[in-house]
Design a protein around this nucleic acid. Structure first.
Length: 524
RNA sequence: GGGCCUGUAGCUUAGUCAGGUAGAGCGCCGGGCUUUUAACCCGGUGGCCGGGGGUUCGAAUCCCCUCAGGCCCGCCA
């Protein structure tokens, strides 16, 4: 059984209406790792619906979280906003300076992410956490947290092993300058929390408004209660012993809620493309990933892996394998039949589940999502045929498609061309026409091969410059050199791409200009 | 120091929660498609399930120990 279906079964035992949730702080660009947070929860939500129980999926944006520091992509002007909620500070402009556009920091990073989510079929109910504060949604929980401050502090000290200082208070008010940093609580008279800020100014915050927020561990526990969340997969950082999941559960109960069961997912790591990490400033964003691969493949990357396993996101060769695997599984579905051993049965069901959950449109027929061509084959055609029409023609001739290409295939080719043109395309999948013959090639071409190449050279100088004309020239040159066709092709590939085999040589050559081919052959 | 995850064929892995003769894909090897699209089709090779012990009629699966890798423990998906 697929992990999402398994979790749905557990939720059915829990009973009632299911609410799956994700929460992300929009402190900077969203990256591919955030997609796992979102999709883990969304797939469980879908599995609940498929199992016939009522479920919704909400995406809580931590827009009330303060700016922690001036990140690399921000200009020093942001120093004055440290400690301010992300919902109340201006978005950075292209230079990293506070913009004049009127949109907020939180929106600035959130909007493109939501657009990407739409493309992969995720349409959450978006909750801006600062709005929940503004509307007083947190008020009664803030009040109980303050009332039961000692108990909550005790939970955090015991379970997290953290030493909470004298000034610790389960509510961080916003001071006179808009920052939560350095504000010390001096008293509480419902609904007001009294404080003295870092400038020595006294004031009070109304807990029914967004004039402060609860610290993360309590905020999280309270929102479970507020939204009735029954399922919220969290990253392994929260899942560690003594992490916020462990403290959240008892705190949520204390606040009168019924917390979700702990579900922890592993992280996505980036690999196979050189210096690609947050620290070096190069990450892969959801939009960038979507410009390379179709959305169902991106979903499949998450769906095919167990939730507690690392995923190495590799935009190189591994993506080929994953995409080809997807194509293959859809066009040749795993059959679940009687004769299987229990083991095989479970494996088949898991695979079927992964494909089902990878569909952009829930419940749609997976066969509509494929192009009918493997990624590796398409990448080859895209490289040797500059015109899309020629690609469709070739696919028709090879029997991959009949007639016009499907819409998903058209999109696949466009994305494939992006991928090929970008930095992430794997080197060993790249078809690179040699400028001049390599030394390795020289070694691999014998006397007969040379004879064939020189004969080919003269035939090519006058043949019709088309697939057919060039192919005929190759065949004729083999005959006149008295060598088998196979070895002729092999010599030709050595000259063209430095290997003994390759994509259809006549197609490759017809994409090149005659002079270039002749001078390359001449160098042999 | 505390904790989590992972270790199965050359590679990527399924199967571990519900113990019952190790599955798959890629790669590789061979064959087919009689002028080879890195396509496609057929067949084959390949694993003392990290190691040790225990429970059991039976262990990749449960328990204990151990080795290796990754990660978390202010904030971070």
């Amino acid at each position: 059984m697929h992990w999402a279906d398994y979790t749905a079964q557990r939720l059915i035992e829990r009973g009632g209406r299911q609410v799956s949730a994700s929460g992300i702080t929009p402190s900077g660009d969203f990256h591919i790792g955030h997609l796992r947070e979102i999709l883990s929860a969304e797939m469980i939500h879908r599995a609940c619906i498929d199992a016939g129980i009522e479920s919704k999926y909400i995406f809580i944006v931590d827009s009330m979280d303060p700016l922690r520091r001036v990140y690399d992509f921000l200009s020093p002007e942001y120093k004055r906003y440290i400690g301010h909620p992300l919902a109340y500070i201006p978005a950075p402009d292209p230079d990293g300076k506070p913009g004049e556009g009127g949109n907020t920091y939180a929106e600035h990073f959130l909007d493109p992410f939501l657009k990407a989510l739409g493309e992969i079929g995720v349409n959450p109910e978006v909750v801006m956490n600062h709005e929940t504060y503004e509307s007083g949604g947190f008020a009664e929980f803030i009040d109980s947290a303050i009332t039961r401050k000692e108990e909550i502090g005790g939970i955090i000290q015991d379970i997290a092993g953290r030493d909470l200082g004298e000034d610790w208070f389960p509510y961080n008010p916003i001071g006179s300058d808009g920052s939560m940093d350095g504000v010390i609580v001096t008293g509480y008279e419902r609904p007001f929390v009294h404080w003295t800020d870092s400038h020595g100014i006294d004031g009070k915050s109304d807990i029914r408004k967004a004039e402060g927020k609860m610290p993360w561990r309590i905020d999280w526990a309270a929102r479970w209660a507020i939204h009735g969340i029954t399922c919220e997969p969290a990253g392994k950082d929260h899942g560690a012993a003594g992490g916020s999941y462990d403290t959240g559960i008892p705190i949520c109960r204390l606040l009168g809620g019924n917390p979700p069961d702990k579900i922890v997912y592993e992280w996505i790591q980036l690999k196979g493309m050189g210096p690609m990490s947050s620290s070096s400033g190069l990450t892969i964003g959801p939009m960038e990933a979507l410009s390379l691969v179709p959305p169902e493949i991106l979903r499949y990357v998450i769906a095919r892996s167990k939730i507690n396993r690392h995923i190495e996101f590799d935009t190189g060769g591994a993506l080929f394998r994953t995409a080809d695997e997807y194509e293959r599984l859809v066009s040749n579905p795993t059959l679940v039949d009687e004769g299987m051993t229990k083991r095989q049965l479970v494996a088949a069901q898991t695979q079927v589940g992964a494909i089902r959950l990878s569909q952009v449109e829930p419940g749609s027929d997976p066969r509509k999502s494929i192009g009918g061509v493997s990624f590796s084959h398409l990448s080859m055609l895209a490289q040797i045929k500059s015109s899309d029409e020629d690609v469709w023609g070739s696919l028709n001739r090879s029997g991959h498609i009949q007639g016009e290409p499907s819409n998903s295939l058209v999109v696949r080719l466009a994305r494939m061309r992006n991928w090929i043109g970008g930095a992430h395309f794997p080197i060993d999948a790249k078809i690179e026409i040699k400028k001049r013959i390599s030394d390795e090639a020289r070694v691999n071409i014998d006397m007969d091969g040379r004879k064939f190449l020189s004969s080919l050279s003269s035939l090519l100088s006058e043949c019709e410059w088309s697939d057919e004309g060039i192919n005929a020239a190759i065949v004729n040159a083999c005959e006149s050199a008295g060598i088998p066709i196979g070895s002729g092709y092999s010599s030709l590939y050595w000259v063209l791409i430095g290997r003994s085999y390759g994509p259809k040589a006549s197609s490759l050559i017809s994409e090149m200009d005659r002079e270039g081919v002749l001078s390359l052959l001449g160098s042999a």
